[in-house]
């Protein structure tokens, strides 16, 4: 069950290549009109090595990893009733098109409260050289399972 995973680090995900067109597509979808996200010449002129991914872009590859973990029946998480409670990003440097990043998930904390479970999952994202790029922390909330364990002997 989920409580057994708290404190664990999951195996690193396979590398994710940040694509230029994906950055453009994401920027368009969130209304980010900054030229450094869509125009390569503008990005280079501003001193960036390639297009700048918008600040929340990393969810495109961190949330699916979290979903895969939480949908695993062995984890025992009620995915159908889950809501996203909080999200934070720390960007150690901008994420760029062309970056090939590896994400490692950490199961940091599980708090039961008022019939719900609050799970903190942390994605550490590093570049091909192993240097940290960003940290994305998601708080996921779902219904707690029936409390039968408390009365069983």
């Amino acid at each position: 069950m989920i409580a057994e995973y708290v404190g664990r680090t999951l195996p690193p995900a396979r590398p994710y290549l940040v694509g230029r067109e994906k950055v453009r597509e994401f920027a368009l979808a969130v209304g980010e009109g900054a030229s450094v996200c869509t125009d390569l010449d503008a990005a280079l002129a501003a001193g960036h090595p390639d297009l700048v991914a918008p600040p929340t872009f990393a969810v495109t590859f961190t949330i699916p990893l979290m979903e895969a973990f939480l949908r695993d029946p062995a984890v025992g998480w009620d995915y159908a009733h889950m809501v996203h409670g909080e999200q934070s990003f720390v960007l150690h440097r901008p994420l760029y098109a062309g970056d090939e990043v590896v994400t490692t998930l950490h199961v940091d904390e599980l708090r039961p409260r008022a019939g719900s479970l609050f799970l903190t999952l942390r994605a550490e994202v590093a570049d091909a050289a192993g240097e940290p790029v960003l940290t994305a922390v998601s708080l996921m909330v779902t219904a707690a399972p029936a409390q039968s364990a408390e009365v069983s002997t």
């Binding site: 450094v36 700048v52 600040p55 934070s88 990003f89 960007l91 901008p94």
Partner: peptide
Amino acid sequence: IGDPGAVVGYAARF
């Protein structure tokens, strides 16, 4: 700020 690359942190609760 003009450049999304200048963002070093962002957090919110839904």
